[in-house]
Design a protein around this nucleic acid. Structure first.
Length: 619
DNA sequence: AAAGAGGAT
DNA sequence: ATATCCTCTTT
């Protein structure tokens, strides 16, 4: 074991001191050890050259054909066949074509004002079009969903458009108990009971599970025997068994993703997020690599630390310059105190990372994002308000599309604020924000109107017109922030947002909404007439009935407030109805029997529907 | 609320 | 290297 071999000149023993912890029955059987679980297993899976793969799949081209995704004159994705020609993302599209005349060049989807959907054009004009990454987002969600479905019990954190972390600890533990039932309790004669160490693990066959990173330094000249079977100098541990099980599961999903969606992925499996991420890039593309604890020191030491997540930027550079070093091994000689003195208290995080420790959690993060931003850089700065409005409309169209699409999956989503950023001249960027009203039909017009208002505050009445202050806007960004699901409301008014997007959600425009409103105005007349309160008094029980907390404090459309109130009223009267019926059970009235959870009105469609259930159901 | 920083691809 | 996107922190 490497522990014993640490040379006196190196700090390795103290540095990597938890690589082979004793694992007891208590560890195995307790469930909430979190990041301290000695059997923790985390994976990172990312899609290879994702945007390029998306286009390759979309266009059904042979994956072996060199393909790049172009954005104006530069490249934003290069698939692996194209990389063989020395093409990289830094290249200009023209240069790439020179390197490989056969190259398939796909320009990213774009759209311009008036177009409802982005489209693919050979030569879009940056003066009139903006790019859309929508297709990639959608494909990304598909992959995420395959992880969710294929890995029950695992925690999944979407890390970026093409990456997700998976915490395998729970599913691995289940598999462990299932495959080795004798682990379910310590031997009856064990002196320490639950604190007895686990028996030696069974031999592991890594066959078909991926590349196991060697425990000894990478093969150089003489040292060159590393089959992926684990005939290592280090004994396998139960953690290694855990890793192999995760590898098995991850391998299956990856194959599934490939066969169902056509994307190849690369996965890294290790004991925490940071190591998983690093391990994923060990071999690419279409690969899976496993980092055993025993392999950590030698894997980490020669690693240029600026490759490490969060050390790729400023901090990494500062460290490199301060100590004039570049590998993890170089930095291991720096004491915690020294590092903290130079780089602040927080550098304990760095100190631990260098030693393979990462306490950050894989936190279940859905594919739902907290913000949505659409932006356009203007190669030729604009000088007229009309141009500003033009671009705001384009950006608003994109946001409308994206928000409504996100609502198909999660109807309760709504953005708290809308923000407009503009850059004038060089590097001054200013912004204004405003609360975004809670509207069902988020249309281009609503967003654009909000954006225009912010523009006015930001740029003022100034215009390129003679006599007024001129301006030069070189970038416009419109975004939603604080996107949330409305869970509290959902709980208190059941089904409030249900069915949205499932039936015929597409006919959504203002006109249509008005029609709908009048169609059930019979029911809500009363409520609408006594407009903007947040509550009403029931005639029957004389009680004051309030809107749910979550709906009260937010900026609600008056329309919607009234409707919500109307729906609440209906719901409340249903309650009375239910009470009466339960006292005097219905024996008359033909076929329709009262069922507590399935009010008959739900079946009776349009006219009678007015409950809050229906509220967001169609427009 | 506004601005900025940082990071990723 | 540039355009775009996202999150978090500071003021």
């Amino acid at each position: 074991m490497w522990k014993g071999k640490a040379k006196a000149t190196e700090l390795t023993e103290a540095d990597f001191d938890d690589l082979d912890p004793v694992i007891t029955y208590r560890h195995l059987l307790s469930h909430n050890l979190g990041v301290k679980d000695p059997l923790r297993v985390v994976a990172l899976c990312d899609s290879d050259a994702f945007y390029a793969a998306c286009e390759q799949v979309r266009l059904k081209v042979d994956p072996a054909i060199p393909l790049v995704v172009r954005q104006w004159d530069s490249l934003i994705a290069v698939n692996y066949p194209a990389r063989k020609f020395g093409i990289s993302r830094m290249d200009k599209a023209d240069d790439a074509l020179k390197k490989c005349p056969e190259l398939k060049v796909v320009h990213v989807a774009t759209y311009k004002e008036g177009e409802k959907e982005p489209g693919y054009w050979d030569k879009p004009d940056t003066k009139t079009h903006k790019v859309s990454l929508d297709h990639y987002r959608r494909e990304s969600v598909k992959i995420y969903n395959m992880f969710k479905e294929g890995l029950p019990g695992a925690e999944i954190e979407k890390a970026s458009i093409d990456e997700a972390f998976v915490d395998f600890t729970r599913p691995v533990r289940e598999k462990l108990m299932e495959r080795y039932p004798y682990l379910s309790q310590p031997p009856t004669d064990a002196p320490d009971g639950l604190d007895t160490p686990l028996p030696p693990p069974p031999p592991i066959s890594w066959d078909g599970l991926g590349t196991v990173i060697p425990t000894t330094p990478e093969p150089t000249d003489d040292n060159n025997e590393h089959s992926s079977t684990c005939e290592d100098d280090t004994l396998a541990t139960w953690h290694d068994v855990a890793l192999s099980m995760a590898a098995e599961m991850m391998g299956k999903v990856r194959v599934d993703i490939h066969s169902k969606l056509g994307y190849t992925t690369s996965a890294g499996i290790g004991r925490n997020k940071f190591l998983a991420k690093l391990t994923a890039s060990y071999r690419k593309p279409n690969s899976q690599s496993i980092l055993r604890n025993a392999a950590i020191p030698n894997y980490l030491k020669p690693m240029p630390f600026q490759k490490i997540r969060f050390l790729g930027g400023k901090l990494g550079k500062a460290l490199a310059e301060e100590y004039d070093v570049k590998t993890v091994g170089d930095l291991l000689t720096i004491s915690l105190e020294e590092m903290q003195r130079k780089f602040g208290e927080n550098s304990i995080w760095v100190y631990e990372i260098l030693r393979g420790i990462d306490r950050s959690d894989v936190k279940e993060k859905s594919a739902i994002t907290k913000s949505m931003l659409a932006s356009k850089n203007l190669p030729k700065p604009i000088v007229k308000t009309s141009e500003g409005h033009h671009w705001i409309r384009v950006l608003a169209a994109e946001l409308a599309l994206r928000l409504n699409e996100a609502r198909e999956a999660s109807p309760t989503l709504w953005p708290r604020t809308i923000v407009l950023h503009i850059r004038q001249g060089y590097q001054t960027s200013r912004s204004k924000q405003a609360a975004f009203p809670f509207v069902r039909n988020v249309t281009v017009d609503i967003i654009a109107a909000a954006g225009d208002k912010l523009w006015k505050e930001l740029v003022g009445a100034r215009d390129g017109a003679p006599g007024s202050m001129p301006f030069k806007v070189s970038s416009v960004q419109l975004s939603f922030t604080g996107i949330e699901s409305m869970n509290a409301a959902q709980q208190s008014i059941e089904g409030f947002f249900k069915n949205r997007g499932s039936s015929d959600a597409e006919g959504s425009n203002l006109k249509r909404k008005r029609e709908d409103d009048t169609s059930h105005s019979m029911d809500s007349d009363q409520a609408i007439s006594e407009l903007p309160t947040a509550s009403f008094t029931c005639d029957r029980c004389r009680k004051r009935i309030h809107l749910p907390e979550a709906l009260r404090d937010i900026s609600l459309d008056e329309d919607i407030r009234a409707e919500a109130l109307a729906a609440l009223r209906t719901e409340h009267s249903d309650f009375h109805l239910a009470q009466e019926l339960s006292k005097a059970p219905d024996k008359s009235s033909g076929g329709a029997k009262f069922r507590p959870n399935t009010p008959t009105r739900k079946k009776n469609k349009q006219k009678e529907t007015s409950g809050i259930t229906k509220f967001f159901s169609r427009q």
